[in-house]
Design a protein around this nucleic acid. Structure first.
Lengths: 147, 147
DNA sequence: TGAACAAATGATAATCTGTTCAGATGAGTC
DNA sequence: GACTCATCTGAACAGATTATCATTTGTTCA
């Protein structure tokens, strides 16, 4: 976060946070700081692709094994070959995975390091993070206030 | 990837890749290497939450500004306050965002560093990556074979 | 060439998701 | 207390997503 941004947006740093003019300036500033719409769409698309248990199993398998054929992916992930094929098609279109053909077998691998890092980060973190809470009130009385 | 895993799964490293027994061993091994089902679900859930353009805008705003109230989030992201509230509720349940109340205003911020890293990585990468391809054949003739 | 195999595709139905609307809650203010 | 503001919630609808089945393509091998 930039210094200027902080000075504009910090709710505690300024008196008159609720003032209309200040609010407009803040919103204007933040809106301009957003990534371009095209990038937002691309980010969302990749995350959406990674947001399905079956596809996560496929990707985790590729992360572990490097290169795997469709048939094996289906067996490992516990999905039909058709499902896997459909999933791979979507991920191919967004370069989340890439292919190599060897005879009649097609091997899939992760598309790039970026995907590899996202996956690795998420899986590692999931390994030692608390379970999901029930849908709760925005302010949970049992929650500790940050210091 | 472990050495043993590579020796079992590398399609080029072994003759008899297609052999049934070897295939079974390979699949068995990969299946056991998958993260626990609970972790897979959790990873998928977080990615799914991050896989919507509106929510990406919300999260990107929080990444940039640190703490933002619901009303401002709606203005910046170009969504109704109700939509934002619904989105935040989902993300709250998975600890993707956290809250702080100040009077009748509720400020939201990113839940933890893990989320921050995922977002940052994805947005940075989207900034200089090629657009999405049309749905294409698994083996695109124009594609370069990896070396 | 034809049989066997791996993978991809198209179409469909069932399911899931996101948005909106109307109303409820909770906190400040007069 | 009545009023306003900021936010939250539940229900309902439209649109997107998913799995599945049948079919097709492309490859190897007898």
């Amino acid at each position: 976060m930039s210094r200027r941004l902080r000075s504009i947006t910090d709710p505690d740093a300024l008196p008159g946070y609720r003032d209309n003019d200040r609010a407009s300036a803040r919103i204007e500033f933040l809106r301009e700081a957003l990534p371009p719409g095209e990038d937002v769409e691309r980010v969302a698309a990749v995350f959406r692709l990674m947001g399905d248990p079956g596809r996560v199993r496929i990707l985790a398998t590729l992360l572990e094994a490097g290169e795997v054929c469709v048939h094996d992916l289906a067996s490992v992930a516990g999905l039909s070959e058709s499902s896997v094929s459909q999933a791979l098609r979507l991920m191919r279109a967004h370069r989340v995975v890439e292919t190599r053909r060897a005879g009649r077998v097609v091997f899939y691998r992760l598309g790039d390091n970026h995907v590899r890092m996202l996956l690795d980060l998420a899986i590692t973190h999931a390994g030692h993070s608390p379970a999901v809470t029930a849908v709760s009130s925005p302010i949970d009385p049992t929650r500790q206030e940050p210091t």
